[in-house]
Amino acid sequence: MLSHKKSLSILKKTNALLEGHFVLSSGLHSPKYIQCAKLLSYPYLAKDICESLAKKIKKNFKKIDLILAPAMGGVIIGYEIGRLLKKETIFCERVDGKFKLRRGFNISKNSRVLIIEDVITTGKSSLECVKLIKKFKAKHLGFASIINRSSKKSLRIKSKIISHLKIEVPTYKKNELPNELRNIKITKPGSRFLK
């Protein structure tokens, strides 16, 4: 397994760990942002992280029929984990603000589905995926992500999350911003803000 220190080194080397004032897809504010797209844009550097996550998933979930990833963030990691585990992998995308399956994707009734994301903070996107799985009368197995940056305060998911790396990063509601964040220009990097 890849060490925490080595993993952070890879995130920094690929400019995936950013500092500033960010509004996350969840609407929470944070002084740090993990842009996994930057990590995954260097497949030769992300390889060890993906293999480590795949091993953890295999250890925790014995029978997976399908991997479901929310677009945009989960698409590449979903593909890579699907390749490593030799599982069909699909993604859902927002249509009028709600996750839907497009492009001929389908979830078979009673299939065992794992949700995979790049980063989980509150779990909002993942829980929206659960609704989609239930709509197709399939079984939701659990959640996996490259980075779990949730806190007890922010996380809505009540079940275990399998992640390659757990990173503690503070998050704040808009009306609870510390002074050091108030004076920094806001960046909104999450895909939920795409029009």
Score class of each variant (00 low, 15 high):
D65C: 05
D65N: 14
L66D: 03
I67L: 14
L68H: 12
L68Y: 10
L68E: 14
A69I: 05
A69G: 12
A69F: 05
A69K: 07
P70V: 06
P70A: 06
P70S: 08
A71T: 14
A71V: 14
A71R: 13
M72E: 10
M72H: 12
M72W: 12
M72G: 12
G73Q: 05
G74L: 07
G74W: 08
G74R: 10
G74S: 07
G74P: 08
V75K: 09
I76V: 15
I77M: 10
I77H: 10
G78Q: 05
G78V: 06
Y79Q: 14
Y79E: 15
Y79K: 15
Y79W: 13
Y79S: 15
E80Q: 13
E80W: 12
I81W: 03
I81F: 04
I81E: 04
I81K: 04
I81L: 07
G82Y: 13
R83V: 12
R83H: 15
R83S: 15
L84I: 13
L85W: 08
K86G: 08
K86E: 12
E88D: 15
T89F: 11
T89W: 08
I90D: 13
F91A: 08
C92M: 12
C92A: 15
E93P: 05
R94G: 11
R94L: 14
R94Q: 11
R94F: 10
V95A: 14
D96P: 05
D96I: 06
G97V: 07
G97F: 06
G97L: 05
K98S: 14
K98Y: 11
K100R: 15
K100P: 08
K100C: 11
K100Q: 15
L101E: 07
R102K: 12
R102T: 10
R102P: 03
F105S: 09
N106G: 02
N106R: 14
I107A: 02
I107M: 03
I107V: 09
S108A: 10
S108N: 11
S108R: 12
S108D: 12
K109T: 02
K109E: 09
N110W: 00
N110L: 00
R112P: 01
V113E: 00
L114K: 02
L114P: 06
I115T: 08
I115L: 10
I115H: 05
I116L: 01
I116F: 02
I116W: 01
D118T: 01
D118R: 01
D118I: 02
D118Q: 06
V119G: 00
V119P: 00
T121F: 02
T121W: 02
G123T: 04
G123N: 05
G123S: 06
G123A: 05
K124A: 07
K124Q: 06
S125W: 00
S125K: 03
S125H: 03
S126T: 04
S126Y: 01
L127V: 09
L127A: 11
